[in-house]
């Protein structure tokens, strides 16, 4: 029984590894193409985390099926990356906002600006958007 399903498990593991590598490529593509550090954090954090989780799960399955060893290091690595990769992205975004990295011109919302935090120096056009938002809402927004 185990002999018959072992190739299936191996192929599932290898496909998981391939999906993870493709997600990493997508993450690098977003990191290159997106216009802003706050938008790039999405690509650099979310899809990269999912990619490395897929790769590590695939490697764990591969070793469990090929070499009959369940590697605890890989399991620990999965848990560790699942916790720390979004945390590092959040820290980086907060530090970027507090040290004044400007937002992209097309950004439509900056909620921390209303909270009275010392935000980044506003980029082009953001000042008049803030003035627009400070006005009382028009009747069409009811």
């Amino acid at each position: 029984m185990l002999q018959t399903i072992q190739p299936v498990i191996e192929w599932i593991a290898v496909l998981l590894i391939l999906c993870g590598a493709l997600l990493s490529v997508l993450s690098a593509f977003g990191l290159i193409r997106l216009p802003d550090v706050y938008l790039r954090s999405h690509a650099a954090t979310k899809s990269s985390t999912l990619g490395v989780l897929c790769v590590l799960s695939g490697v764990f399955l591969y070793f469990a099926s090929v070499m009959q060893t369940a590697s605890m290091n890989i399991l620990l690595g999965i848990v560790f990356f699942f916790i720390t990769a979004p945390l590092a992205g959040h820290l980086n975004g907060r530090a970027a906002y507090r040290s004044g990295v400007p937002l992209w011109n097309g950004s439509v919302q900056d909620e921390l600006a209303d909270a009275g935090l010392s935000g980044p120096p506003v980029s082009f056009g953001a000042e008049e958007r803030r003035n627009d938002r400070a006005e009382p809402p028009g009747p069409e927004e009811d």
């Binding site: 990493s24 990191l31 954090s41 650099a44 990619g51 790769v55 695939g58 980086n92």
Partner: peptide, 25 residues
């Protein structure tokens, strides 16, 4: 900005870890 470089360096670290795992397999 420096924040772009830090985010990209973090992604490089994560990808290198995945690459080492695949090399082990």
């Amino acid at each position: 900005s420096i924040a772009d470089r830090i985010a990209a360096l973090d992604t490089i670290g994560v990808n290198v870890a995945a690459e080492v795992a695949v090399a082990g397999a």
